[in-house]
Structure formats: C-alpha cells, structure tokens
Computed example of a mutant assay.
Amino acid sequence: MKLKFAGAIFAANFALASIAVAQGTAPADVAVINTCLKTAEKNGGFGGACVGLVADPCIKAAEGKNGDVDNWKACAARELAIWTQKTNEALKQANGGGPDVTKPVTDSQKSFAVSRDRFCAVFDRVEPGMYRGGASYCRLRETANRALSLIKLGAAVNEH
C-alpha cells in the first residue's frame, strides 16, 4: 500500500514539482518559512501568515524595475518551490493515516494540480498590478494552503 501511495503522490505532484525544481530553494528562504511555521505551531495557529513571506518582499523590491511582471512571477516561483517541497513532505506524513486517510488524500491530490492551474491561469488575464505575479502567485497561494492543510493532517494522523 505504501508503495502504491508513493507512486500516486509522485504522479500527482509531477506538475507541481517540475515548476518548483527549476527554481530550487534557497536555504535562507526556507528558513524564513520554517521559522514562521514553527511559531504558528507553537501558538496553535494554521500558518496562513507564513504565505508570501519570501515572495512579497521580493515583489516589492522588484517594483519599478524593467520587466516588473516577469520579476514578480520569478518572486512567486521562488516561494512556490518551498511550498511544493512542503506539500511533498506533508503527503509522506499523511501516509501514516492508514487507508481511511491515504485513499481520499491520494485521490484528491491527483486532481489538485490540474484544478489549481486551471483556476490560476485566469490571473494572467487580469491587469498585472491587481495580482502581482499573476498565475504564478496564485499557484504559490493555492499550493501553500494545500501544504498547510496536509501538514495539519499529517500531524493529526501521526499524533499517537
């Protein structure tokens, strides 16, 4: 069962990972997110305030430079790489929940990337200043929220 689950996770996350792997993750960026998540966990929070901690300052610094939109997208992709990594780690933790957890998580994960990408594509068709980073920033936010939920699920099923 674990091998089948791991294969399904790999296939479902290929699109997610291919975007993020190209970007890589800078250790300092990962540390910013990890520190925030540890604080949120300690305080019983969800971690939503941790989303954008890498991309937002990067986007602000890129304002007024040539290629604003491309720079904004690169900033979003930089943080997306971190949340993609967090999603993959959390999926492995959720594996500890047995078939009652594993099957629904695996099934929903198969369609997550496709759904996210269809939805987020809309943001590349609106005025770039309205949602800096367009579809790239949307993918970052959607992936981060998914990761945060999976982190909580993984913690819950591995609690005992």
Score class of each variant (00 low, 15 high):
Ala74Gly: 04
Arg125Val: 10
Leu153Asn: 04
Ile9Trp: 02
Val126Pro: 01
Phe14Ser: 10
Lys2Ser: 08
Ala17Ile: 06
Ala90Lys: 06
Leu16Arg: 02
Thr143Ser: 15
Lys38Thr: 13
Ala26Phe: 03
Thr35His: 03
Thr87Ala: 15
Asn88His: 07
Asp117Gln: 01
Glu89Tyr: 04
Ala6Asp: 11
Pro27Ile: 05
Pro104Thr: 11
Asn88Trp: 04
Asp29Tyr: 01
Ala22Arg: 15
Val122Phe: 05
Glu41Asp: 09
Gly52Leu: 05
Gly98Ser: 14
Thr102Val: 15
His160Thr: 11
Thr102Ile: 09
Ala12Ile: 01
Ala156Met: 11
Ile82Ala: 13
Leu150Lys: 05
Gly45Asn: 09
Lys60Gly: 12
Thr143Asp: 12
Ala15Tyr: 00
Lys38Asp: 14
Glu89Thr: 13
Ser136Asn: 09
Ala121Gln: 09
Ile151Met: 12
Ala94Tyr: 04
Ala28Asn: 06
Asn95Cys: 11
Asn88Gly: 14
Pro27Tyr: 05
Ala55Trp: 00
Thr25Asn: 14
Glu159Pro: 00
Asp70Val: 13
Val157Leu: 09
Arg132Asn: 05
Val105Met: 01
Asn13Gln: 09
Thr35Gln: 11
Lys2Cys: 05
Asn13Cys: 10
Glu127Leu: 04
His160Gly: 06
Ala49Cys: 00
Ala94Ile: 02
Ala20Cys: 11
Val21His: 11
Arg125Gly: 07
Ala147His: 01
Ala11Ser: 08
Cys75Trp: 03
Ala144Ser: 06
Arg141Ser: 15
Phe14Gly: 02
Ser111Cys: 00
Leu3Lys: 04
Met130Gln: 07
Ala40Gly: 03
Thr84Asp: 14
Leu140Tyr: 00
Arg118Ser: 12
Ile151Cys: 03
Gly7His: 07
Ala31Pro: 00
Ala155Pro: 01
Gly96Glu: 08
Ala74Met: 06
Thr35Ser: 13
Arg132Phe: 00
Cys50Lys: 06
Ala113Trp: 00
Gly154Ile: 07
Val69Met: 06
Asn95Arg: 03
Gly48His: 01
Phe123Glu: 12
Asn43Tyr: 00
Arg139Ala: 15
Ala77Trp: 02
Ala76Leu: 08
Asn34His: 11
